[in-house]
Design a protein around this nucleic acid. Structure first.
Lengths: 131, 131
DNA sequence: GCTTGACCTTGTAGTTGCTACAAGGTGCAT
DNA sequence: ATGCACCTTGTAGCAACTACAAGGTCAAGC
């Protein structure tokens, strides 16, 4: 599989794939006689893994951790588990914050429609003390 | 309130606060006789808002828009209405995205029954073909 | 009175995670 | 032989910070 195909299959730019290789996020591909990168199904799986993890909000550093963990098949799951748990917590916190912003924006629209002046609490809705 | 205190209260670096001021994201603070920035509770609220909005994935430009909405009192409703509607849509899209992340992450955790990474469904599920 | 630490300024450069060029080259199909 | 996908190195851009440097001011404590 060549870089263009891999790019298409994973929705990643070829330049980004080469970037991942440089950064050590992806293992280097074999080369054809003509020096073109030649990817295996394992590379496809690895890149898919990286892209999904990035989509799920994991940083490059976290992706590295996940990859390192997944290399140690004999180790207990706990470490992977904890990373996911942390990520889930963060996502849930964000959902809550967005919901309060959502309701504030909803109120704004409502008061606009009823032509009332309405107090704007948009800043207040997200201005609760941090942490 | 001086910049150091505001920084501590919001978990923002003092340099970032000055950066926001330069960028017009935060109103300039009053100055003390000795030319030090002197922040009001309103500044604290505004900065807290900005930080949260940024955490929630709003760009600086979008934060600017949201802030503009918060002083809509003096503007006609019609002008504000569409802006609010757009922001609400954006917020709802984000909530949906995060909820799908939430459920994926949740499923991952649930599926992690075995205690060896070799059999870890989390790692497997990350390597599933995209989309 | 002198040191320490927080603040002030301007300016430059590094970070992350890409993305996009340029400028040169090779390989391969039509 | 034309055109496209690929190869390389190198540079530079993006957002939103973050971190310095190098200069200065100011207020508090010993």
């Amino acid at each position: 599989m060549r870089i263009g195909e891999l790019a298409k299959a994973t929705g990643t730019k070829a330049e980004t794939i080469r970037y991942y290789e440089r950064e050590g996020i992806l293992p280097a591909a074999d080369r054809t006689d003509s020096n073109h990168r030649d990817y295996s199904p394992d590379h496809l799986a690895a890149l898919t893994f990286v892209r999904r993890a990035r989509e799920l909000g994991f940083s490059m550093a976290q992706v590295r951790e996940l990859l390192a963990l997944s290399d140690h098949e004999d180790k207990p799951c706990q470490d992977v588990d904890q990373l996911v748990r942390d990520q889930l917590e963060e996502v849930e916190r964000k959902i809550e914050d967005l919901q309060s912003l959502q309701s504030e924006l909803g109120l704004m629209l409502k008061s606009c429609r009823s032509d009332k002046i309405g107090e704007c609490r948009i800043v207040e809705s997200l201005a609760r003390p941090i942490r």
